[in-house]
Amino acid sequence: MISKRENYLMAAHGEKPLWVPSFAEDSNVFLPDFWMQVDPQTGTDFCNIRWVENDAGRMPDEKWRAMENLDQWRETVKFPKVAELDWPEMAERFKSMSDPEKVNIAILNTNGIFLIPIDMIGWVDGLCAIYEEPEELEAFISAITDFLVEVVKYFGAYIHPDIVFTGDDLAAANGPFISKEIWESLYKPYFKKIIDAIHEIGALAEFHCCGNCQFLIDAFLEIGVDICQLPEPNESLRQKKEKYGKRLVLTGGWDRHSAAAFPGASEEVVRESVQKAIDDYGKNGALIFWDGGICGSSEDSRKKMEWVLSELNKYGRAVYNHKSI
């Protein structure tokens, strides 16, 4: 019998594993300390973004501006000095908390070169800057990229991850926030630099993006993304999966907007939703199952997750072995 790690990596490489792996259950996740460190007085991080807890989790405070104007980023952002971080201590702590049977995933970032400027000055000014201050925005994007690339090198030296998780929420429910032209001219070169750095340390690159990514799926694959974490199943994604097959490795699959996600959903409906996710996106492999991470902590949510994981273990193990359910 192979380990969870070996099985997970089979799917991550676009193969048909022995069973459908679970992102939540089969991975050890490393997050550098600096992403969660905030000023105790203001609640702000090293980009001067203030974070608050709400029903959606840890989110930027919409009432807070990290800076008034984009050209203030140089004096506002205090990038951690990567070489001075206690990497041996972080690595040892991660090792002590990890299951050697599971895959190792290092989180490089969730907010990145697209979202950080927006989180600092707001959606309106952040998107307007793409057109009104492209040179200044690109200088900021370049600086964030250089920081992330340096962090990747230390991942390689101390954490030795199988997969490095990066990403940016470049899309909403109706489609991408940016055009193909803006992607090509402003963002693509820097995202590719990050993906190349991940590959240089011998890890797979996983890219997270919420929303209906549409043309961005093609763009992600073009720059070398190995795994697309796309927690918004939709017709566009199904079409892309049919087009690319095992080349499009997905983390996700479960439709968090379906009847199975509603409060009070029955066990039958929930279990059927898991089967549908696997049939739609992983019948031939190249799927790492994930519920989207927003089921909540209520009693209803707890039962729902028990059914989801139970059916994943049942149907997800039978589907690749041609056994009856």
Rank of each mutant, 00 (worst) to 15 (best):
M59H: 00
V319Q: 14
A261V: 09
F147T: 01
S310V: 00
T76E: 07
N69C: 00
F220P: 03
P189Y: 04
M90E: 13
H322G: 12
R5M: 13
C47R: 11
W35F: 14
C209S: 14
C128L: 10
L248F: 08
L127T: 03
R247P: 04
E68R: 11
K240L: 07
A157R: 15
F155T: 00
D226N: 11
G296D: 01
I105S: 02
V151M: 10
A171D: 00
D45V: 06
G245L: 14
T44L: 11
E6A: 13
S179Q: 09
I141Q: 13
E92K: 15
F23G: 04
S179H: 10
K4I: 01
L170C: 07
T166V: 04
E268S: 14
I49M: 05
G122C: 06
G252K: 05
L237A: 05
K188T: 00
E200H: 11
P233D: 11
E132I: 08
A265Q: 11
V52F: 03
G245A: 14
D279E: 15
K180T: 01
K63T: 10
R317M: 08
E25I: 12
S96D: 08
E6R: 12
S27K: 11
F94N: 05
S310N: 13
L9S: 06
V249L: 04
L309H: 13
K78T: 08
F191M: 12
L216E: 01
A106Y: 04
D71G: 06
E15C: 14
Y154N: 07
A139L: 04
H322M: 12
S301W: 01
N234W: 06
P134T: 02
L237E: 12
L108S: 10
F79A: 02
L287A: 07
E242I: 10
F114D: 09
E272G: 14
L250P: 06
F165R: 01
R271E: 15
K16N: 09
Y154T: 00
K193Q: 14
I217V: 13
S27W: 07
